[in-house]
């Protein structure tokens, strides 16, 4: 089938503002949107800029906005998004992060905030000779959060970051913090609270659920944010605050 692929193009160094460019691509309905982009790049227009790597939804390189919704291009099939009689598909870069070129956005700020939650196991107790013991139930408690691939789809979809508080830590960042808060082996609760329990931390979230809707890994992001809020409240209560 023929697809009309409309791609937002922008080179901040030479263009005054973004514009759309349309390409016609012959594809199979089971192809990925990423396959279309690669086809354009290899056989029509080498100047099209986008990131890619694993091509099956596990590395997080190719999050972009397809028909208005944040998705991974490699996890989105043509048949699920081609619209109207001319099979049109619209592709734009993620929002809330500066455009570098075309579909590439600068993720430095996203990673900087990720690093701020101390996303590593904190435990200074002497480790046993063998593995630390953890029950299957304890392990299951943080399973959902381990799925995060830091693709930034949630960060782009977050209306709080876009409209109200651009400094809000971000949905993926809270998920990554919760991955350790819920790990029975971790002792870093207080170190992370110092980042999460601030006006820029977990509190700006208003439960719009956009992050949960777009997460390509199906993580219950908003739920994890709310559970994190609850943990902080319980902690304050315990301390009589």
């Amino acid at each position: 089938m023929k697809v009309a692929l409309k791609i937002e193009r922008f080179n901040p160094k030479s263009d005054a503002k973004p514009h759309f460019q349309e390409y016609s691509v012959d594809v199979s309905e089971n192809d990925r949107v990423l396959d279309l982009l690669i086809h354009v790049k290899r056989f029509q227009d080498g100047s099209l800029a986008f990131r890619k790597s694993c091509a099956h939804g596990v590395c997080g390189s190719d999050a972009m906005i397809i028909n208005g919704i944040e998705r991974l291009a490699c996890k989105t099939l043509v048949k699920d998004v081609a619209q109207n009689e001319n099979n049109s598909i619209t592709v734009e870069p993620l929002k809330n992060l500066p455009i570098q070129r075309d579909l590439m956005v600068n993720q430095d700020e996203f990673f900087k905030r990720y690093k701020s939650v101390k996303p590593f196991l904190i435990n200074d107790e002497k480790a046993p000779g063998r593995e630390r013991i953890q029950s299957p139930e304890e392990r299951k408690k943080f399973d959902d959060a381990t799925k995060c691939i830091l693709c930034a789809a949630c960060f782009s979809a977050c209306p709080v970051i876009r409209e109200k508080n651009p400094l809000f830590l971000g949905p993926a960042q809270v998920v990554q913090a919760s991955r350790f808060l819920d790990d029975s082996r971790d002792r870093g609760f207080e170190a992370r609270i110092a980042v999460l329990d601030t006006p820029k931390g977990v509190w700006p979230c208003e439960n719009h659920f956009k992050c949960t809707e777009v997460c390509p890994r199906g993580i219950k992001v908003t739920k994890l944010i709310n559970l994190t809020k609850k943990k902080i409240k319980n902690y304050r209560e315990r301390r009589g605050q």
Binding site: R130, E131, I133, Q134, P136, E138, F142, D183, D186
Partner: peptide, 20 residues
């Protein structure tokens, strides 16, 4: 190596006794 990765935080699946 596997024990070291576990100590560094790798979330292995667990047996009923809590081992890897």
């Amino acid at each position: 190596a596997v024990i070291d990765l576990e100590h560094r935080g790798l979330p292995f699946n667990r047996t009923a006794e809590g081992k890897i």
